[in-house]
């Protein structure tokens, strides 16, 4: 079992609202994009923003402001030159990183767009899932303003979309995970039973991590729909907020934010809680005694794991992003 990064190494400040989305840049994953309810997207270099720095918005490289509503998701393409962001303004924004301008804005959703991800060969399409219950697939190559396809099987809001190879996996508030396989033309519908808030797929693509609003994170076997492991804790509380979960350290740990400001880390195989972190206080907490949180802003909405380093980041209601890493030798 490799050591889990538990030291806060950077704190990205400057957002004026809840941070809903964090995304590492592709490639060496040196930069981070954060999207907030203050309607801006910020590009940070976390290495320039140590915990000790007193300057405000340390490590800030660029600010992308075109959204008129909160930003709910960000995804960076593999070439690191474009990214896509979605939010409350019912449209999907396709950005150029260098010029900080939107290349395209796809409108067509009838409600806020919860998630937008790149997909396809050379990131040629963008898949977006919206509160209106539809998933729309947009073409980045052609100039079309209409979606290539709309998947409207879901009965309720689409909260998360993830893409693996030629499969589009969507999670919905109707408690179902739908896997659209383009090769076979089939859609596998797996009932989770509770509103699904977050999806994460393993590197092999055979397992899927599903967060749902019953304070449980589940690892599902994608081949037959069976439950491999359920991750719970008596202190882990996720019943009302969209909280992201992720897999890390080569798919050996499960990390999830929570409604009460804690970040939980489980061992993927045995399902035990490895660590608990208090996001707002930048520290690890131990023991099950967690003080009741009255602060509404104290929740961790987004966690993301760096794929190349032992590093991960959490963001939440206080508007700050904390990057956690290994202690400096």
């Amino acid at each position: 079992m490799p050591k889990f990064p538990i030291e806060p190494i950077a704190k990205l400040t400057g957002h004026g609202g809840i941070v809903h989305a964090i995304a590492y840049s592709s490639g060496s994953q040196q930069y981070m994009l954060t999207g907030s309810s203050d309607r801006t997207i910020r590009l940070y270099n976390p290495s320039k923003a140590p915990i000790s720095s007193q300057t405000s918005a340390a490590g800030l490289i660029n600010t992308y402001s075109a959204h008129g509503y909160e930003v709910l998701s960000i995804d960076v393409n593999a070439a690191n030159e474009k990214f896509v962001s979605t939010g409350g303004d019912k449209s999907v924004f396709y950005w150029d990183v260098q010029t900080a301008q939107t290349i395209r804005r796809w409108t067509g959703h009838n409600a806020r767009v919860n998630k937008g991800v790149f997909a396809g060969q050379d990131d040629s399409v963008v898949v977006s899932g919206s509160y209106d219950g539809t998933v729309k697939i947009w073409d980045t190559k052609s100039g079309s303003y209409k979606p290539i396809m709309t998947l409207d099987e879901a009965k309720d809001s689409i909260t998360d979309v993830c893409v693996y190879d030629s499969e589009i996996i969507t999670g919905s508030v109707d408690g179902r995970v739908r896997s659209y396989d383009l090769r076979t033309g089939q859609c596998q519908v797996d009932v989770i039973g509770h509103p699904v808030t977050s999806l994460a797929i393993t590197k092999q693509g055979t397992e899927l991590l599903v967060s749902s609003l019953d304070s449980t994170v589940r690892l599902m076997d994608r081949t037959n729909g069976q439950l491999l492991k359920a991750y719970r804790d008596e202190g882990f509380h996720n019943k009302e907020l969209r909280v992201r979960s992720t897999l890390g350290l080569n798919d050996s740990v499960v990390v999830s934010g929570s409604d009460d400001g804690l970040v939980y880390v489980w061992d993927m195989l045995d399902g035990h809680v490895l660590h608990k972190f208090k996001h707002s206080e930048l520290r690890q907490v131990s023991g099950s005694a967690t003080q009741a949180m009255k602060n509404n802003k104290d929740f961790v909405g987004a966690v993301t794991f760096c794929r190349v380093r032992k590093e991960w980041a959490s963001a939440g209601g206080d508007g700050n992003v904390v990057v956690w890493g290994m202690a400096q030798q």
Binding site: V125, D139, K141, M149, Y180, L182, Q188, G225
Partner: peptide, 26 residues
């Protein structure tokens, strides 16, 4: 979870989508 909770429904991806994903359309 398992066979009870899983249903398979057909869906027809558009040709352009399959082209973008570089897969042979069903």
């Amino acid at each position: 979870y398992g066979a009870m909770t899983r249903t398979v429904i057909p869906f027809l991806p558009s040709r352009l989508l399959c082209k973008r994903f570089n897969v042979k359309p069903p």
